[in-house]
Amino acid sequence: MATLQTRASARLMMTPAVVLLLLWMAVPLAMTLYFSMLRYNLLMPGMEEWAGFLNYRFFLTDPAFFAGLLNTLLLVGGVLAISVGGGILMALLLDQPFFGQGLVRLMVIAPFFVMPTVSALVWKNMLMHPVNGLFAWLARTFGLQPVDWFGQAPLFSIVMIVSWQWLPFATLILLTALQSLDSEQKEAAEMDGAGALSRFIYIVLPHMARAITVVVLIETIFLLSVFAEILVTTNGGPGVQTTTVTYLVYVQALLQFDVGGASAGGIVAVVLANIVAIFLVRLIGKNLD
């Protein structure tokens, strides 16, 4: 559709964005890769030396890494299950006509706009506090023993907080997908004698399948990097019970000043994220044509 002239100016106009992103991605990543092969600690300046794959060996054989990997998987898996499952139900509910629908919709999506540090602190202190928290009061009201959330089930507590943040995202996207379903399709199915449940299983769910995939992939990308919620609630503890791979890299870099080790961890995180990213990029790419 374009002539040579417009194509030339187009190339010029793309250059800043492409060059900047290339720098932003390639340079630090190359440095990380390089550092990961060094023995390099900020507390011992001038002592840098080539270490080969030693950092990787240390990082991958560190028991904290396995705990971190497991915690990461549990966190991502848990939040995905709650937010996607809940999101489907919420989307179906919000798709029904009722009074004040618009207002309820606004309330439901609100948590997504709350900054991570605020939601983590509000939940930790005001809701989940074992003595003064609202949950504790509720438990006592019903004659139950209040739960010490961050003491007894620290990872689960974080999963709850993060799920609360991401449920609106899943709901909103699944609702959008749901509403784009041609109502004639549903009516045709109804004429064909399909009941509400069969309509959901054979018409609605397949229609939402792509949106669900998108939600799963995008949430996974963001959830692999959950950081602030851990930092302000548990600091990765008790022990390493809530340390994820992301948090572990942070600890090594900015608390232990082990640049080499942290870099190796960073590369491992990149590899993990890429496994998901490949699927997501493919899916979006298909949609582009």
């Binding site: 340079v27 440095m31 550092f35 990097s225 961890g265």
Partner: peptide, 20 residues
């Protein structure tokens, strides 16, 4: 798609060099 993939790069992957 390449631009998109840079968004998927986890921040910890470049934390150390950016910090330094």
């Amino acid at each position: 798609l390449w631009m998109l993939s840079t968004k998927m790069l986890p921040a910890v992957g470049v934390l150390v060099p950016i910090y330094l």
